[in-house]
Design a protein around this nucleic acid. Sequence first.
DNA 1: ACAATTGTATTACTCCATTAATACAATTTA
DNA 2: TAAATTGTATTAATGGAGTAATACAATTGT
Lengths: 136, 136
Amino acid sequence: MRLHISTKDPVPIYQQIITQVKHLVASQRLRPGDEVPPIRVLAEQLLINPNTVARAYRELESAGILTSKKGSGTKVSLKGNTLGLKERLKELSAPVDSLLVQAHQLGFTIEEVIEIVRERNSLFRALQKEKDQSDK
Amino acid sequence: MRLHISTKDPVPIYQQIITQVKHLVASQRLRPGDEVPPIRVLAEQLLINPNTVARAYRELESAGILTSKKGSGTKVSLKGNTLGLKERLKELSAPVDSLLVQAHQLGFTIEEVIEIVRERNSLFRALQKEKDQSDK
DNA sequence: ACAATTGTATTACTCCATTAATACAATTTA
DNA sequence: TAAATTGTATTAATGGAGTAATACAATTGT
């Protein structure tokens, strides 16, 4: 499992790990049952303190994404992150709301917002393609 | 000018002030040329340290929304917050992008995202109406 | 001119999130 | 069973954001 962290990033390291693991699971590059590296191993790879990795794993376990057991290690949960539609919708509501508030303050209409969302999405997908190429 | 702050809110006080002033300007309840209360006066009203208000005013000035002058006080800028389309688009790009990333991780398609945006917008506008009623 | 009013600048304090140090407990493996 | 491996728990150190204390500077108004 290859993760990339940056100490310059204002986002805390443990959060970067959480985000990236979530993304790996969501994109099926990590599947239910797969093992993630032991805390100390990943910590050495990333040149950070084991506690930082531990914290990330702990929170990922709370989120139901990983399952840990002393001695055995940590695996991707069997249920995975299969949230129901309701939960997924709920998770998205907050960011959508704050986006709408900001857009409104900037004087955008709802249709303009949607137009921007479409545009950024196209851009995003284009960039994603490039990245996938270079990952090989 | 009536502002409401909460020390319980995790959002820092100076940020609450910034947000509310921006909103007042955006909604025309504060117009270009209007004076805002002196730092010390607003601080006394809100029972907070004058420096906290000063910080909010300073940042609002950086954002081009207020204009301060020693001795005279602080007013809403004549240009107001009339950002060009480019700047406004730029301001919205980051939040839109992070929304798209999160939505993608949750397994939503772009069309589903847009559907959610529309729904939350309807809800938002409904709530806004209620609030306007009670403001009278 | 002078006192009052206003914003500015500098410095320090406090709190809390993040990270680190270290010891402990369960499981595996030889 | 004993050593190695793994996650857990507790406590402490660090840094930075937010706020406060205080002195300074420009303008206003009498």
